[in-house]
Design a protein around this nucleic acid. Structure first.
Lengths: 416, 416
DNA sequence: AATATTATATTTAGAACGTAAATTTATGTT
DNA sequence: AACATAAATTTACGTTCTAAATATAATATT
């Protein structure tokens, strides 16, 4: 073994003993990471980025090409000035050396997203369980629907299942660090706890599970308004409030995967329940005197009415803003984020809440965090699932075989 | 440069390019870490722990001996069985290759603790500012008092200032990841923000700043009831409530160092203020009809009276337990710790609160965390400061010179 | 006392890696 | 065609780790 780890009075110490071979692997990982984000690079670029000598950089790149992670591009004309000297070899991380799948498995529907290894979103597919005649409480046929969403998205992306290197899955239940669901909601329990193994069995991919709000935070920190923010709170607030918390660029999960999960809020003055924006809008709408809102009110109707100047609707929005503001105030008090993002399907309409929300925050916090609305819409969880899968792939690049590998049909790239 | 780092759409990626020399350094760090926790070890032990070959292990140990971090012990008689074969060389991390200082700088007094590099506590010294005639609002002479506490503790430990490799400092103010105090309390501001530079200037040590509750968490995770717990909340609750939060074995600091800091709690039903146990006991005691408690009541008097069966005092304790329980319930809801520890000077007497506190927690949480009382007493912050300094030393071992080094008097160990 | 046993340290030879310097290569300019 | 230039490639070398062979220091056996 080359890893020794031990608990030292509560401190987990991990030691990695190194051999020259592992040294080369480390440098491969380094250069691969540089290439992943730099589009295309030549030897000199990589020398500058890594500090390694030219001979080493080229040797590593050749190794990476042989391994299938990197492609060599035809020599480029210099964009600035004239071509001087021997043309540089140009290397590029092969974003199509594999694919990842991101799943958002909800109560009513499942969304599958396919991305390449650089995170470019290639396809997205949503299938409602109801539309396929699946009852809410029947676990087995759900997987058929989920597979259908996956396969359609893969086909759209021009990928075959064998090329998928990992899948991330978001569900509305706590997920601990090991990827287990400690104690699911009664109804979902049998289904939730089986998702990981069943998907792994069906497709043979590594499957990473994540709580929906946590994945929303990953997505937001990746490609939303939270990009670059190290300390971030993302609030999913459609039907039910839930937070995804990142501190120092890392996701907080908690002992049982419940970090950011909102249980009862009866302790919070003027809040009481963890109801989300859509639900509050509906419930409060039903109680007003505005005729349009009392009958079959929907969140959209309330927001629309407020936009048109309906006083009752405007009052509802203020009430919602006050409630959310208080919840955010408490979370921000204890976790001190730089930015709080409101995400999910209700995010777009929530922009009108921002001002009232910030006013409420100011009542309770001396220096409140910034508040923003997510641009990722209802893709936020599936994008987070993609990010989760990408993180797994990036962490295990050199252990994986690009293009499917293993028993599955290898593509021509890696045949010699 | 050999480190390339860049922001990739919100993700900080750090790459370390490696050379053979860095490889040896990594193996030195590995073996040093194994030795630090294993007391004493021979070649075979280290081979098992690291996976390196015998020749490498011995060579690395010789390097470490030459560098001053490791000592070779005379061959040991085997405790079990008889000595067979050539006796093994025995290596030991030299816990006295240097020292660390932990400081708890409070409003009224300063405590200095000196420990060796294995974390053994060698000396402790507390000096009250008042006793030295220092007014609360005069920054300058405080450093004289602090230095006095440090020097006395160092002398007690048999260490000279030149042998100190780092100092950790705990203060009752937020401290961000860079070690700065973003916005101190008005009165302390000029003093607090200057502590780090002034101590560094006076002694030449690396000085690490930490919030008191955060350091309490480090201490508890190190040598308290929280040892081995990855997700931990430690509540300092003497005069004012403050939390130190650890997730996945890492301290949470937040964007401005305010993670775990309790501001106003007016949002929390039945709580309102962040008053701690001692303060609540005093305030509530003053309002009872028990004569003993109304005049100059102190926290101890209230706890004593309750222990003797005084009904009013018992009621006060229940009130306190309910308040604390509610605060803990909210923190636990959002951060999901495995264990909550009550720490500080009031910890010992707080044991009687545990039952009522757990009952209150059960009202709000479906699966509440364990709750315990810290065994570290009022040393908790200074021990955390020691841990902070030790962590710094461990992280930078191979950059430091044991025994003081640099301009300071080297000790004989490293002269050749 | 001499010899075997045994676990360990040390030496030796070899392979992999990274670097610096010299050399070659491919392009554009004169 | 000769030259300039920038990059790739080759060469020689030092460092590291490993495996195998050898030496060493203790005890046990004869």
């Amino acid at each position: 073994m080359d890893i020794a780890s031990a608990h030292v009075k509560g401190y987990l110490v991990e030691h990695t003993a190194n051999t020259p071979q592992q040294l080369r692997r480390a440098n491969m990982a380094t250069i691969l990471a540089v290439l992943r984000r730099s589009g295309a690079a030549n030897g000199t670029d990589l020398i500058d980025a890594t500090g390694l000598a030219r001979a080493t950089v080229i040797a590593v790149c050749d190794d990476l090409i042989k391994a299938g992670w990197v492609q060599e591009l035809p020599a480029q004309k210099p964009s600035t000035g004239v071509q001087k000297g021997r043309p540089a070899r140009v290397f590029e991380f092969d974003a199509r050396a594999g694919f990842v799948v991101g799943l958002d498995i909800g109560m009513a529907k499942t969304t599958a997203v396919v991305a390449d290894l650089k995170g470019a979103i290639l396809a997205k597919n949503t299938v409602a369980f109801a539309a396929m005649g699946v009852r809410a409480d029947s676990p087995a046929p759900r997987f058929t629907v989920i597979d259908q969403a996956i396969c359609a998205a893969l086909a759209d992306a021009g990928a075959v299942p064998g090329e998928v290197l990992a899948a991330g899955v978001g569900i509305a239940a706590p997920v601990d660090r090991a990827g287990n669901i400690p104690s699911g909601q009664p109804m979902w329990k049998t289904f939730d706890t089986g998702i990981k193994d069943e998907l792994q069995r069906r497709h043979g991919w590594p499957v990473l599970m994540g709580n929906d709000a946590n994945l929303a935070a990953l997505a937001e920190a990746w490609m939303g308004v939270g990009a670059g923010v190290q300390d971030l709170a993302v609030m999913l607030a459609g039907e039910r409030i839930g937070f995804g918390l990142m501190e120092s660029g890392r996701l907080l999960r908690g002992a049982r995967g419940r970090a950011g999960e909102v249980g009862s809020l009866e302790l919070l003055d003027g809040v009481g329940t963890p109801d989300g924006i859509a639900r509050l809008a509906r419930d409060l709408g039903a109680q007003t005197e505005t005729a349009e809102l009392t009958q079959f009110p929907s969140a959209e109707q309330v927001f629309d009415a407020a936009a048109r100047g309906d006083a009752a609707a405007a009052k509802i929005l203020t009430t919602i803003a006050v409630r959310l503001g208080r919840v955010i105030a408490v979370v921000a008090t204890f976790t001190d984020p730089e930015l709080v993002v409101i995400g999910g399907a209700v995010a777009a309409s929530s922009a009108v809440l921002l001002e009232a929300l910030e006013a409420e925050l100011a009542n309770f916090l001396p220096s409140p965090p910034r508040v923003a609305v997510s641009p990722l819409g209802d893709s936020i969880v599936s994008l987070g699932a993609v990010r989760l899968a990408l993180d797994h792939v990036q962490e295990h690049v050199l252990e994986l075989v690009p293009g499917g590998g293993g028993m599955r049909g290898r593509n021509s790239r890696q045949m010699e």
